[in-house]
Design a protein around this nucleic acid. Structure first.
Lengths: 334, 334
DNA sequence: CTGAAAGCGCTAACAC
DNA sequence: GTGTTAGCGCTTTCAG
């Protein structure tokens, strides 16, 4: 099998401790033996067994990342941020696609814990993710991304979802719309709830409470947006505008609207959430709320590293980024 | 620190070997002590140290996946296929974003090797990835995805890129186009080369050799497609149609065309490659070549598992899937 | 059915 | 500078 440190020691005629030192560039070992040993290592295709090393150093140089749906362009961007930051530290990341399923989420977290990852970054699948994870009493630092729990002992990096959603809704109100619908994603998602609250509050503040036109959410995807909007149309409920819980839902909503010959933004205005890359395509030109996805990923990784360094699983780190409304072409004055 | 098997043994008043057996459901251990020990394990929040176990079992239940750009919606789909298949086997995957950079690729592969992953799935960054990887003389099974090397000892799962590209080009020819351009991605990518060859061969077969209108590629992304097409327009080279090396390039090409007031497909027909989710958006409606991304991912993982089982790093496994041309709205008769 | 002991590949005192 | 030795947390003979 693979050549070990002992094999090298035998060849070099030294103890294997010396080999270990040489390979790790310890200062005590003479420069010649160092060179010598490294040469032998190279010649014999030695590859250090990181898992053995990890066992003794109690350190795997590995992070876990849980995302609900890697097919949603929002998450690859986050993942890239996490990965780049982790890579700079010499860390690798385990990518876990949870499919919006907390069971799967917990199962993944358990294996990550067993694999002794240095930290776990979670884009939660649902609101009960938090307590489920908490009940695991992990030793590993955990940071949430995209949404938060009330429990301030937990760390997170988010944008202010509620405010963002309010901004979007108020923009629509300014444009003269009164019958504004909200089409949500997974109903047990915290981000979804916050975005809904932001929407509702904006209506309330502007005395439009009566107009609240909720289209119950189902999933954070295109099909769901399409189906929900189609159903609403079938019922004859055609709002002036719709606030969507994310961009891909918005894409589905627009699809439904246009396939029923309603023009966007001519007949109905639509605003999304996330600002995925495709939102800026001229043909799409979706008005939406931007999230600094990549930065959120790297910031989350940053917090993990800070926690690892500090050895204090203590206080929660909280980063709340400000959202920006990107006005493009799917909204129009009424 | 974390409770170990020895702690449990002490509590249970048995040897730690027995604890190990009980926890692993060995048949020899009495059902009562088994229950007993499991209970103690649960109560004390025991989590098996997979890295210690891995050291002795020489098995990490981990796969590595290298992709050039996780932001390209093609790759998350592949990743999902790999991940789902791996998950069924109880494996986790290391996601490595190589940024089309073979240096980074090799560096990643080295750490994956050091971390003793059971196998590595590579969506290669460039044509020299193959020999660079080969020179590493890995013990780990490797399977390539998306493009292949001539070296038949390597395993891969691909679609027939050349044929696919020919199909797309011939479709354009049937539509009456003669001045057909090819806008490529990374020039040192094998997939890019194969797709270019398919394009050129189709022209040749139809006696259109003289018309070959190559727009040198640069990157597999939207900006590149946009820039290349814009430059071509500026030079006054407006082809009848353009074959793009992938969908996101096509998106950029269309963007460039329309921002210069050329209508697609009215003035210029465009065909993409990959069939990413956004290609089917009514507003985009991109004619393209479909790749079974998810299946390709899971098949690649499948090969890895077969190799792990067989313990024969021997013969290369080759899967060549048939491409399908998806005719949508970006091409029109001339 | 269970215990004792060796060892996976490596690092880190502790000696000399 | 380098060797010896004791683990890291676990699985797996080998005894009994």
């Amino acid at each position: 099998m693979a050549v070990t440190i002992k094999d090298l020691a035998k060849i070099a005629g030294v103890s294997y401790a010396t080999v270990s030192r040489a390979l790790n560039d310890h200062p005590e070992v003479s420069i010649e033996t160092k060179e010598q040993i490294k040469k032998i290592a190279r010649e014999n295709g030695y590859s250090p067994n990181e898992i053995a090393r990890g066992l003794v150093k109690k350190n795997t140089n590995t992070l876990g990342l849980l995302v609900p749906d890697i097919s949603n362009p929002y998450f690859p961007e986050v993942a890239k941020g996490v990965e780049d930051r982790a890579n700079r530290e010499g860390y690798n990341i385990f990518l876990c696609n949870t499919g919006w399923n907390t069971e799967k989420e917990i199962q993944y977290i358990k294996t990550l814990r067993d694999k002794r990852v240095a930290g776990i970054i979670i884009a939660p699948a649902a609101s009960d993710t938090y307590k489920k994870v908490k009940s695991l009493e992990l030793d590993n630092p955990v940071v949430y991304i995209g949404s938060r729990s009330d429990d301030r002992s937990m760390s997170f990096v988010i944008i202010d979802n509620e405010k963002a959603s309010s901004m979007a809704t108020e923009y629509l109100i300014e444009l003269g719309h009164t019958d504004i619908a909200f089409i949500g994603g997974n109903e047990n998602s915290v981000a979804n709830e916050e975005r809904f609250n932001g929407y509702r509050n904006a209506l309330k503040i502007h005395g439009l409470e009566r107009e609240v036109h909720i289209v119950k959410g189902s999933s954070f995807n295109r099909e769901s947006g399409f189906n929900l909007m189609s159903a609403s149309i079938k019922e004859g409920r055609i709002p002036h505008a719709v606030v969507c819980a994310n961009d891909i839902i918005a894409l589905g909503v627009i699809e439904a609207l246009e396939s029923n010959f309603y023009n966007v933004p001519g007949d109905v205005s639509v605003v999304g959430f996330d600002d995925i890359a495709y939102a800026s395509l001229p043909k799409i030109n979706l008005t939406t709320v931007a999230q600094p996805k990549y930065d959120m990923g790297s910031m989350a990784a940053d917090i993990v590293f800070r926690k690892i360094g500090a050895r204090q699983s203590g206080a929660g780190n909280h980063i709340v980024l400000q959202p920006a409304l990107i006005k493009r072409g799917t909204c129009r004055k009424r």
